[in-house]
Design a protein around this nucleic acid. Structure first.
Lengths: 328, 328
DNA sequence: ATTAGCACTTGAGAAATATTAGTGCTAACT
DNA sequence: AGTTAGCACTAATATTTCTCAAGTGCTAAT
């Protein structure tokens, strides 16, 4: 167990390091506390022994270890009020009654990325929650048409396709077939249903049935819940810990890879969760703060990615505020 | 006018510099030509006087100036055959008969970005070429619905909207009204037509007409030809000229900004055009090679962005090949 | 016109040095 | 027993000096 003074020192070191990104020495601390630098040094040594602090070299000041940050977020961080300016800006977004969930999310997270200089991510619901609601077709000209797929969660995807020697009549027939037989099926089961229920009978109605079948099959195969929205990636370049090209390549590579993001960012917990360094699967250099949101049957994840030396209090408060407003 | 030997030297320096990104000295050149290094040095001095070469410091080898590159692409570069491997990979894409224009473009430019380690950009046609083809509505539940807008060029946009106290009946009425009166209108004139032709009469059919009108108005207002597709941005990090964070921030900032890209990349010329350094409005550090494409009424720009020290021959040949295949 | 030869310049890298911000430890102090 | 002053020590950082290699420009000879 840490003494009160130790906690004070740990907290000071972390907040100071978050501010300036430079190792913190005993002098700075002893000005805040009413005791000598030697005392502080002794305490620092024991905090280091506990694995909460680290040195960059033998005679440097201390920086927080991942365990130190963990202790901070678990025990030391006190829930802060949202700062007035942040609140005001967010209010403007949420006061707009016109917007849809997706807009609230993307707008507010864009704002957060700007305000904090971190990167924010919105993940939409996963496709297996979506059921086929309706499919429709808009002909463009004799040989081109657009197939539009809508799910019950309001996810829409469209694809322009090229079909030669197929009459509009036949396509409408196919669409009706699908709308009659497959609507209500979870999106990721549509492919198989298409194969077993449509393929065998489509020949009755359509001449070039193989081509038409393949086209529709392709449309659903491409369907994905690609609601991955990464905002403020470039903010990473502002963080002093990302001062070499290799690290930048590394994190940018990951943030560019949709699959990687979906796999590693999706959060199933409804609280605000904090994953520091190795605790997250994205990148040891960063902290990910995230939460699952629900809103009228839709759900997904919102996340903020920043350096481990992140302004934890502020980000948590911001995310809480957004989650709350989204879910109301 | 440059002598034959001067041209040879200039060309050697440029190709060598493109390969290795290091200043080229007279020794290397005189091994290729049958003359002494002193002679080469004299020639280099005059090429420098003409502004075609530069030194990084008094006793360094030479690097090409922007004027030097310009001379190279205007006079020295000879149209190359597409290298077998490149061709093969592209063939695989274009041989696939199933794909749509947008797919050919994005697939082939993704491939080019990979092969060259440059960044490629596809711009779709601008919205004023698109005319409204059809608008349709899919209800999700009692209060949510999706409005889908399709243009004659096959551009589709959708928006989920929230409408309280409005019956499906009334919405269908509105949609029919729009489909009857406004279809065929260029997208960027829809807003005003909506105001003058729909707004005055919508009250006859719809109770909450103001709200409904505003919703549809918003849908069209958000409609944009946001066909900006930037692939391989991270390749920039591989280029030795982008070895400091500031330069990276600069170019990444520009490539993230859709408006900036649309304004500075859109090309009206049907030939392959090359903009070296200050010649392009994007960034002095890069060269942009681009061309306008046409395909069945659709048009847009494809562009490759790389360091000024770019493999001009290869990129030009690749772009030519793609343009040709797209337009056939 | 070309070239050999040489003095000269610069950047890059290595080694030597000084400076500084911090430490840990000991012994004295309250 | 906890706190503190004092001091020797350490490692990073910055500064200087030195050496080396790559390449130039110029002059004089071919």
């Amino acid at each position: 167990m840490l003494s009160e003074r130790q906690e004070k020192i740990l907290k000071l070191i972390i907040t100071e390091y978050i501010k300036l990104a430079k190792p913190v020495g005993s002098n700075l601390i002893c000005k805040e506390l009413k005791c000598s630098s030697a005392t502080v040094r002794n305490e620092m040594a024991s905090l280091e022994e506990l694995g909460l602090l680290e040195k960059t070299h033998t005679s440097s000041g201390r920086i927080p270890s991942e365990k130190g940050y963990r202790y901070y977020v678990d025990h030391l961080m006190k829930p802060k009020e949202l700062n007035g300016e942040d609140m005001l800006k967010l209010q403007i977004i949420f006061n707009n009654q016109q917007l849809e969930l997706a807009d609230y999310l993307s707008e507010s997270l864009k704002l957060i990325a700007d305000m904090t200089s971190y990167t924010s991510i919105v993940l939409g619901g996963t496709s297996h929650d979506n059921k086929l609601k309706e499919i429709s077709v808009v002909p463009i000209d004799a040989e081109n048409l657009i197939i539009i797929v809508v799910t019950d969660k309001g996810h829409v995807e469209n694809k322009k396709v090229y079909l030669k020697n197929v009459s509009l009549e036949e396509i409408k027939k196919t669409v009706n077939l699908i709308n009659d037989l497959i609507v209500g099926t979870p999106i990721d089961e549509v492919s198989s249903k298409l194969e077993f229920e449509i393929k065998p009978i489509i020949g009755r109605y359509v001449k070039e049935h193989e081509m038409v079948y393949n086209t529709f099959y392709q449309v659903f195969k491409d369907f994905s819940s690609k609601n991955v929205n990464v905002v403020g990636k470039n903010n990473i370049l502002k963080q002093p810990e990302f001062n070499n090209i290799e690290k930048i390549q590394n994190i940018f590579g990951k943030l560019e890879n949709q699959k990687e993001i979906i796999d590693n960012i999706t959060e199933e917990n409804n609280d605000i969760k904090i994953y520091i360094g190795k605790e997250n699967n994205l990148d040891d250099e960063v902290t990910v703060i995230k939460t699952k949101y629900h809103s009228k049957g839709e759900e997904g994840t919102i996340a903020i990615v920043g350096p481990k030396r992140m302004d934890y209090d502020r980000v948590v408060t911001l995310l809480e505020y957004i989650k709350e407003n989204i879910e109301k």
